[in-house]
């Protein structure tokens, strides 16, 4: 049973909390100690909007352990509005085929359970096609 890794990652997993570098201003996800752009310390938390678009994608039919119950599922590289590329599952895709450039938004969903039905439920970010509004904004 693993608890600590999941507990440590909860803010980024539930809510796309990354960082903005105080030195060069770049937005980082996931958060890290050193800014990969300027090499200085990155520490200011930044809550990403969750909006982005599909940069690339693939469909998984032969999943890693723990994801069997969700197959087949689509994994995408999502280009966030703020810049970073995030790897995540797509969900609620419906009948519309996923395409490069499809606008998506972050949702918090169940990722898997730790071990069997006695284990921790692990939640985190996925992306879905942007919910269509029936009325003009």
């Amino acid at each position: 049973m693993e608890i600590t890794p999941h507990w440590r990652l909860k803010k980024q997993r539930y809510n796309l909390v990354g960082e903005t570098c105080p030195h060069c201003g770049v937005k980082l996800f996931p958060p890290r100690d050193i800014c990969p752009e300027c090499g200085q310390e990155a520490k200011n938390l930044y809550n990403f909007s969750g909006k982005g678009e599909v940069y690339s994608y693939t469909t998984v039919y032969d999943p890693p352990a723990g994801y069997e119950e969700y197959t087949p599922y689509t994994v995408a590289l999502v280009k966030l509005e703020e810049g970073p590329l995030v790897t995540a599952q797509l969900t609620d895709v419906g009948q519309t085929p996923v395409e490069i450039g499809t606008p998506v938004e972050m949702v918090t969903r169940k990722l898997r359970q730790d071990g069997d039905e006695r284990g921790l439920l692990i939640y985190g970010y996925k992306f879905r096609p942007v919910l269509e509004r029936q009325l003009a904004q």
Binding site: Y70, V107, T108, R109, K110, K126
Partner: peptide, 13 residues
């Protein structure tokens, strides 16, 4: 609900 949805995820949205 979808395979990855439950009362936690739906309540969050």
């Amino acid at each position: 609900p979808g395979l990855d949805e439950d009362v936690v995820t739906m309540s969050i949205e």
